[in-house]
Amino acid sequence: MQLGIAAFILRKLLRLALLLIAVAIFSFVLISLSPIDPIDAYVGADMLQISPEQRDIIAQRWGLDQPMMTRFILWLRQLASGNLGTSIIFNQPVSTVIGSRFQTSLQMLAIAWLISGALGLAMGVVAGARAGSWLDRAIRFYAYTLAASPTFWVALLLLLVFSVSLKITPICCATPPGVLTRDVTVWQRLHHLILPAATLSLIGVANIALHTRQKLIEVLNSDYVLFARAQGESLVGIIRHHGLRNIILPALTLQFASLSELFGGSVLAEQVFSYPGLGKATVEAALRSDVPLLVGIVFFSALFVYTGNLIADLTYQIVDPRIRIGKSS
């Protein structure tokens, strides 16, 4: 079994390397073809004060006069040594920016991930156990509606209701304005991430609820549940002893695999709430032509989503006895 898992991880790492190389090529080609001029983007408003000669010097220093292939190799070499460059808008190394921004996002993402998972699972179980009832229909209606509504729209709606009308949640940001970072309390932080996390949870619930419902219905129609009923097990007992055991694994897998949607959703939600996380940084980098930061985020998100999928695959390997033990014997 140890060997099996080691080989599995090795294979996955190889795939990851291929994926990152592909991402590198795509990013490079796309950005080379884009109308953004790196020197313009770097110099920004001071543009008028530079002479064409000075421009040429910068271009030479940066190697912009080299052919595309050479530039790609040079860039790849920097990448491989871990140097993602310097963010133009933050004037800090890209890795530092991503690191600190991701930390801000992480709390919100983690909360949204946990809540959407737990809530979705619960809704799926209720709907599946009472399949066909009005409760089931209501849950399905909710899930289908939410699955079809755009993130920013849900975010705006929440903002309007809870921050503008009811005034119980802050209107923006991760901390109260005018308060020093070290003076911000945990409660203030939580208070600020409620709405963005709620937005992502409300939407994230749909997929897992529908999936769990389907899976539970399958389980309830299985032979082993029929046998459990023949032994006098009640519906609640069946769900407790057999249902959860058999739906938790697919649910967990789905939830890890949905990290990509969560991440994508955070870009929009953070924008609406001006929540200074990685998602907002993405939008800023794109709007202000911060190419190094944008490429850095592309790499980071590829890694993030890949890790989610890897964990999803790995849970099966480790948790499902049919795979875990079945392989060794």
């Binding site: 082993y224 046998f227 023949a230 032994q231 006098g232 057999h242 058999n246 006895p321």
Partner: peptide
């Protein structure tokens, strides 16, 4: 039936497919 099944009346099923695969 509900009171008796599993107590006074028991079923021996056809195959191992009637056992929970994850328990």
């Amino acid at each position: 039936c509900q009171d008796l099944r599993g107590k006074a009346i028991a079923l021996i099923p056809q195959s191992i497919g009637y056992l929970d695969p994850l328990m």
